[in-house]
Design a binder for these strands. Structure first.
Lengths: 195, 195
DNA sequence: CCGTAGACAACTCAGCGGGGTTTGTAAACG
DNA sequence: CGTTTACAAACCCCGCTGAGTTGTCTACGG
């Protein structure tokens, strides 16, 4: 059935990342230990270190994984609203807001609060904004490519997306009203800015 | 010169608040004790309790004091830019951003990070957004009154101001680039939204 | 070879008193 | 009225301990 090659060449790494995401979703980052990941995936603890290097590198890998998914989701949302910049951008951010509320990892990945209950960020304090900056640039590029009708330069798109992202993060950190209210505000702001 | 009434009827309260602000600016909220305030103002500790009630109420009073000053500053900035909504609003927020950077109390009052070095917020966690909401409404009213040329309804002004406020807080909590960058972004966003 | 198992020092972190300070209240004193 | 003094309860910092983890190394085995 399978190729004759070793059963888990580099696929083990993905299983480990998935296991880590599971543990985080269930019990938070504090509950993630290299030994637990090894047990869940069925490898030795040493193998985990061989694959991931260290716990800090695991955190970084999870960041990249999550931001990639975030950008992919935005790309899908935009593709679902061709020729409708306000609708597409709004859908993307609403979708992200809802996803982030359900997924603590994404909330953290996007730069949520620093002193949360987990000491996740302390590991990433090295370059907390680099992740966001990458995501902002990627999303801005998606918007610019899909909505050429909106007459914004590349740097203007970047400024706008960063502002929207900050607004979104603000709603994650401080959910003043209902999610309804947050989405409504974002829709209005996006509408005004793209008018 | 003065009325013959008692030398410090309710003026003691203001001196106490000022003393508290001084201590906070110098050594942070943790260094604020009722006894220290009493010593600085020259009254007994019991009088401090009579005037302020409790330390939590002191915190609340400081919040109100600071947000009032914030609104007053915005009002001044707006008055300095008659007939120029974008200029006035931008100046107000730039001014606030700079003031907040220099004044830790304002930074906290506007809803800065939770797990700062001080346990100031833990006391206010009761209603963290009520303060902001009041400030947003007040500022929105100022804008609406001074810039009737901008065709926004009262609730639209409120939405816009809340968004700008969240953007400003975001820059306080996570000063990605330089203050220049933050101000530039805010100017651009405000310009687009008021166009 | 590649992964496993076991051992290891260094580190982190919750739990635990103890001591000092502070809060908040209540009395008695000008 | 405001000031003292007193006092219980709460809080916070400190040093300590013990369990759990990290990261590395070495020996073992298919």
């Amino acid at each position: 059935m399978n190729a004759v090659t070793h059963p888990a060449p580099a696929r083990t790494r993905e299983k480990l990342l998935a296991a880590a995401a599971d543990v985080i979703e269930a019990d938070g980052w504090a509950a993630v230990t290299m030994g637990k990941l090894a047990g869940r995936v069925g490898v030795s603890r040493q193998t985990v270190y061989n694959e991931l290097g260290s716990k800090a590198e695991l955190a970084k890998a999870l960041m990249l994984r999550e931001t990639d998914r975030f950008v992919a989701r935005v790309t899908d949302d935009v593709a679902a609203h061709p020729g409708d910049p306000v609708g597409g951008v709004t859908a993307a951010f609403r979708h992200t807001l809802e996803a982030a509320r359900a997924n603590p990892l994404l909330e953290i990945a996007l730069g949520g609060q620093q002193g949360g209950r987990d000491d996740f960020l302390p590991l990433l304090t090295s370059q907390p904004e680099a992740v966001i900056e990458r995501a902002v640039d990627a999303v801005a590029a998606v918007f610019a490519r899909r909505y050429p009708g909106v007459r914004l330069t590349a740097s203007e798109w970047a400024v706008a997306v960063e502002a929207w992202m900050r607004l979104l993060l603000s709603h994650l950190v401080q959910p003043s009203g209902s999610a309804e209210h947050a989405v409504g505000q974002m829709r209005w702001v996006i509408g005004r800015m793209l008018a």
